[in-house]
């Protein structure tokens, strides 16, 4: 190992001839050239703008009976009304807020729990690893949706409970991934060098190893976000969402019984979920391709 260049006296280090391209730059360029990812970004942007500014612009109260119940699209309202005569479009615009907030917050929670558990298991190895992996396995054998249903039912449905439930059930995969990355990178020379230089464990874990293991974690974060949104939709569909806040899944669940007579009541909110998750998947795929160009054709 070349320790001479690490000497504190900076006069001894020759100035670099030319600044090499920052690796992130190359990644960014590949990402921006990806048409599918660009389409995903545009779709997500539309969804975000729609849910943030839509309700104010459209100006119809989503909880009010505004028209004849179950009237089809175009007949008084743009996307029709539900069984209570509420405007579906207004519901979609407002309902997206809950779906997106729950999806994003619970995805962050999932990722944080997964990364911390995986980091400790991979870094310390041995007994810590064995214990943490048993813990992870425990959460993997419990069917995630059922566990989330149980948690939400027991702790009364509210936004906090739902976020907590989704966060608790989904982190196992991330933990395994992080652990594998930590084990691989922990043996590389630059980590050994940092260790030899006397870096503390916490510094090694989160400043030295974590940055190197981020690419696969970022890619699966996109997947986790999509999955969390689908999860929230599933829970609200089953009537386990916060009953007082409109969300896409809740609209579908409430109109389930009228689906054969009024297709628009479930089709449009479902389309909104689909488009949002699709956009996130496309972006995730794009990030994956950009971060490891060699695997681009592996799909």
């Amino acid at each position: 190992m070349n320790t001479d260049t690490l000497a504190p006296d900076s006069n001894l280090v020759p100035p670099p001839a030319a600044k090499p391209d920052h690796p992130l730059r190359e990644t960014l360029v590949i990402f921006l050239k990806n048409k599918a990812a660009a389409a995903g970004m545009i779709l997500l942007l539309i969804v975000l703008v729609g849910t943030i500014f839509g309700p104010a612009l459209y100006g119809v109260d989503a909880n009010e009976m505004v028209w004849i119940p179950l009237s089809p699209p175009g007949d008084g309202t743009p996307l029709g009304t539900d069984y209570l005569g509420r405007d579906i479009l207004a519901g979609i615009l407002v309902g997206g807020r809950v779906t997106l907030i729950v999806g994003a917050v619970s995805a962050v929670m999932t990722i944080v729990i997964g990364v911390v558990v995986g980091a400790f298991a991979g870094f310390f190895g041995g007994r810590v690893d064995a214990a943490l992996m048993k813990f992870t396995e425990f959460f993997q054998v419990l069917p995630s949706l059922l566990l989330a249903m149980v948690l939400v039912t027991i702790f009364a449905p509210s936004l906090t409970t739902i976020i907590f439930a989704i966060g608790v059930v989904g982190w196992a995969q991330i933990a395994r991934l992080t652990r594998a990355e930590f084990m691989r990178i922990g043996n590389l020379d630059y980590v050994k060098a940092a260790r030899a230089a006397g870096a503390r464990d916490s510094y090694l874990m989160f400043r030295v190893i974590l940055p190197g293991s981020l690419p696969p974690i970022i890619v699966s974060s996109a997947l986790v976000t999509g999955a969390s949104i689908l999860f929230e939709a599933g829970l609200s569909f089953l009537g386990l969402g916060d009953p007082n806040t409109l969300s896409w899944g809740l609209i579908i669940g409430q109109n389930q019984n009228y689906l054969l007579d009024a297709w628009w009541t479930v089709t449009c909110p479902g389309m909104a979920i689909f488009v949002t998750v699709l956009a996130i998947s496309l972006i995730g795929d794009g990030i994956n391709d950009a971060l490891n160009p060699r695997a681009r054709k592996r799909g």
Partner: peptide, 25 residues
Amino acid sequence: TVLSLVGYSAPVFWIGMMLLILFAS
């Protein structure tokens, strides 16, 4: 690739409902 993306992104209960509308109604 496109079909698998669709399968990943659509809520399963919604796919069921769409099939019901198409093939039961």
